[in-house]
Design a protein around this nucleic acid. Structure first.
Length: 839
RNA sequence: GGGCGGUUAACUCAGUUGAUAGAGUGCCAUCUUGACGUGGUGGAGGUCGGGGGUUUGAGUCCCUCACCGCCCACCA
């Protein structure tokens, strides 16, 4: 083995080896229970950041772990390339607007861009050594996936879960499309409460200038006027009524009367509703179509008229006096100026308040009525909540986020987008009566814009149809990833595990649960593993911050290696956000060096070790009865009689494998790694290797059989430590395996070997007096002796090799014999001339 | 406003079911030609955010407050 580990060359070589030998190829007929992983298809949004690395690596470690537990791991990758993120990326990169180009041309650009980034992602995953079978890959723009998406949509239409309606919908004027509640983000913006007077009809004599006097007294109602505080004065012309709370004594007498809208002078009624809060503003609220979601609710409940103010492009409708054609923001300012000029601006308070913005562009969201497709999510809330109990959430508190989201749902899931690059709706409409006509199953996938529909309308007999031009919300397709994976002819649902980050619980996790319940009546997966974020500094998600080029993951891999980054990733607790700084990588780097050097040492001493080509270590693993170390009866004729300290390290490896496995079954990647680290650094390197060093070098002093015992334990311990680490650092562990162990082991790759099997349950719960426990305890005693000697020498500034005349060790009688058998080793590593054992 | 996390050594974090507080980094000292100076060994360093309570005993359980972060609600 080389003096230094050259990760640049070796990582690449190992990746090529895995690909060439198809080490991770999935075979559905292979033995072992299938463990299927629903991994996020990343959206093509241009940024490949360390957050991706972080969350995907955590799941990848689990995939490797399950494989080494004997599961048949199904681990397909996908890419979510359609949808708004790709469109916005193209718009940004090319400096164009989608609607300024012919539809086909824009879609073509999106397709090219998606392709480019998909390849970039794929290369990235490969560089990180992901154990995925790329033949299972899917892309959401591909015909087979589009077909599944359309099929399942039609299924929902049939069952009445998907429906079309004309109604107020969340609308992004920047992206010019409807959006869903889940795509809302909040942002604090500066605004102003504008106080305006609504004069009771028939009391117009009361003039507004007079009103100002009343403002001083805390907006006390005037018998003839109601004062409204609004942040949306530009919607005055859309005002359809005022609301007061029915139990608000101040306004009781006003209910049922009419007022005149300031500036525009038309009459509207004063209505009562519980949703009007007494203590907000003046207690009188104007309802416009539409200022917020409450307006939309009132509009439906009170059957209010619709007054169009805002157009889909975010400008004011042409028939609105004074502000027609202006953008909402300009219109607001213009209206305030106008109110002021007319003496209708009673007061204006600057405030900062939270508004809903579109997550993709950050622009304020409006509510505009239009015809859209929805999936019903409001009526089955209880089932969605119940489903959460059937799923194991890791970490468990993440379930709360899901529950909070489901309980707070206000809108059905709008799945139509007035965009271009996505899965088309397989729908046409009758030009005469507007009835929808759906594509036939054999037509799918279909783009209605490209196919002229022939036939007659069932409802009215018309023969002319118009195609639906909207496309699906990207989540409408990615919410059926379990079904997409089943296209390969496997029965998967519920899948074993979903992995994702916490910010998409309300979208991806929620929507997948909805779709799964609707399509299969079952939960989509048994476990859900939720990762945290990587933060650049306090509270700043790295993907969203700037000047993070040093954290550019590709560059990091090139300078530090994939294994180093993977090892770092595994240090985080599941679900917890983590800070990243390149300084954090010095520890993983040190670890790689240590693993390399320890292996180099062990292997150098194993060159002459005579092992039959019999998968020696695997056999031993299966033979957990080795616990009693009755070597004479062992089926392995080659196996020497083991000295107690050699038994100790073997036992420690087994115990560690067992503990780490238990943690990994709970998705505790970090704790499992700490467990393994403890074994490797403390027991294996600091103690075991030091203890047996001389025995390995000097068989003349210690004996040939004794040396063989050390070799045996060394072989067993190192091989199995490498296996434990191989889920975290697959490259270096594979390389060392190939360089040495492969000669003796049957398995082609370390990644196809199995971990030491967990000890039988009885033994785990068992008496501390079992041989296994006693040997572990003995090891602790020996370590105590070592520590004491080291402290003695260190305190006297002596070399660790300094000679000691006499070492007195007090032992319990039960360990006396074992200590006696370890005497030569102890003499060697303490350099004591004489050791005296007392009890 | 509702909810969830976090607050432990200078730094980054572990601390399972209550019983002398742990690791790594950093710091100090020291060792060193047989895996590793990208090292070994040892040491110093902590009122476990504050305040109450339960208990023989609380970092751990309960209440409360503070600060940090996130999720949700809040657009009158």
């Amino acid at each position: 083995m080389e003096k230094r580990y050259n990760f640049t060359q070796i990582e690449k070589r190992m990746q090529e080896f895995w690909e060439r030998e198809k080490i991770y190829a999935f075979d559905k007929n292979a033995p072992g229970e299938i463990y299927s992983i629903d991994t996020p298809p990343p959206t093509v949004s241009g940024s490949l950041h360390i957050g991706h690395l972080f969350s995907y690596v955590q799941a990848e470690i689990i995939a490797r772990f399950r494989r080494m537990q004997g599961y048949n791991v199904f681990y397909p990758f996908g890419f979510d390339d359609n949808g708004l993120p790709t469109e916005r990326l193209v718009e940004r990169e090319e400096g164009i607007r989608a609607n300024a180009l012919p539809r086909g041309e824009f879609i073509e650009k999106c397709r090219n861009t998606a392709e480019k980034y998909v390849n970039e992602f794929k290369d990235f995953w490969k560089t990180l050594g992901f154990s995925a079978d790329w033949s299972l890959e899917y892309q959401t723009i591909n015909p087979d996936v589009r077909k599944i998406s359309q099929q399942l949509f039609l299924e929902l239409v049939k069952s009445g879960k998907a429906y079309m309606k004309e109604s107020p919908v969340l609308w992004c004027a920047e992206c010019r499309t409807s959006i869903a509640q889940a795509e809302l983000e909040t942002a604090d913006i500066e605004s102003a409460y504008v106080y305006v007077p609504f004069v009771l009809a028939g009391n117009e004599a009361e003039n507004a200038a007079h009103m100002k006097d009343h403002m001083s007294e805390d907006a006390k109602p005037n018998p003839a006027t109601l004062i409204v505080a609004t942040t949306r004065p530009e919607l005055l012309y859309g005002c359809v009524c005022l609301f007061v709370n029915p139990s608000d004594g101040r306004y009781k007498d006003f209910i049922g009367k009419s007022v005149k809208v300031p500036l525009y002078d038309y009459e509207i009624p004063i209505l009562a509703d519980d949703k009007a809060s007494i203590d907000k503003g003046t207690g009188v609220v104007m309802c416009a179509t539409f200022g917020d979601s409450t307006d939309a609710e009132w509009y439906a409940e009170h059957e209010l008229p619709y007054r169009k103010i805002i157009l889909p492009d975010g400008t004011i409708a042409a028939d609105v006096p004074y502000i027609a054609g202006l953008h909402v923001r300009e219109a607001r300012a213009a209206t305030v100026r106008l109110l002021d000029e007319r003496g209708l601006l009673l007061k204006s308070d600057n405030i900062v308040h939270t508004v809903g913005v579109h997550e993709r562009c950050g622009k304020e969201v409006e509510i505009i009525p239009s015809r859209q497709w929805y999936i019903d999510v409001l009526t089955k809330r209880d089932e969605f909540l119940k489903a959460a109990d059937g799923i194991n959430w890791y970490p468990s508190q993440m379930k709360n986020r899901y529950i909070a989201w489901v309980e707070n749902l206000k809108w059905d899931w709008c799945i139509s987008r007035q965009r271009y690059f996505g899965v088309p709706f397989p729908v046409w409409y009758c030009e005469e009566c507007g009835a929808p006509i759906f594509a036939r199953p054999e037509q799918l996938p279909v783009n209605p814009l490209e196919i002229e529909l022939c036939g007659t309308c069932d409802s009215c007999g018309s023969t002319s149809f118009v195609p639906e031009s909207a496309v699906f919300d990207t989540w409408a397709t990615s919410s059926v990833t379990p079904q997409i994976n089943e296209r390969l002819g496997l029965e998967l649902t519920p899948m074993s595990m979903r992995t994702q980050a916490h910010e998409i619980i309300r979208t991806w996790a929620f929507y997948t649960i909805v779709r799964s319940l609707y399509h299969t009546g079952n939960i989509p997966w048994k476990d859900i593993m939720i990762c945290g974020w990587v933060l650049a500094k306090k509270g700043e998600k790295i993907g969203k911050s700037k000047n993070n080029s040093e954290s550019e993951p590709k560059a990091l891999i090139e300078t530090h290696s994939a294994d180093v980054l993977r090892y770092w990733t595994a240090g985080a607790r599941l679900g917890m956000d983590t800070f990243f700084s390149p300084d954090e990588l010095s520890i993983p780097k040190r670890f790689i060096t240590k693993l390399w050097n320890a292996s180099k040492f062990a292997i150098a001493h194993l060159q002459d070790f005579d092992i039959a080509d019999s998968d020696c270590a695997d056999c031993i693993i299966a033979d957990s009865d080795i616990a009693d170390y009755d070597c004479a009866d062992s089926p392995f004729t080659d196996k020497p009689e083991l000295l107690p300290i050699d038994r100790w390290i073997i036992e420690r490896v087994k115990v560690t494998a067992d503990r780490a496995a238990k943690l990994l079954y709970e998705y505790e990647i970090g704790s499992a790694r700490h467990e393994i680290d403890g074994l490797f650094w403390k027991d294996f390197c600091d103690n075991y290797i030091e203890i047996v060093k001389e025995r390995l070098y000097e068989p003349e002093i210690h004996g040939v059989t004794e040396r063989k015992s050390a070799q045996y334990a060394l072989y067993y311990a190192l091989l199995n430590i490498l296996k434990l680490y191989s889920i975290y650092v697959p490259h270096i562990s594979e390389y060392i395996y190939q360089e040495f162990f492969r000669r003796h082991e049957k398995t082609a790759s370390i990644h196809k070997t199995l971990w030491v099997k967990p000890l039988p349950v009885e033994r785990l719960a068992g008496e501390p007096s079992s041989a296994n426990d006693r040997i572990i305890l003995f090891g602790e005693k020996v370590k105590d002796v070592m520590a004491e000697v080291r402290r003695y020498k260190s305190e006297r500034n002596l070399s660790m090799r300094a000679e000691m005349d006499e070492l007195v060790i007090k032992t319990e009688p039960e360990f006396a014999e074992w200590f006696r058998l370890t005497e030569k080793d102890l003499k060697a590593c303490t350099n004591a001339k004489e050791i005296i054992f007392t009890t």
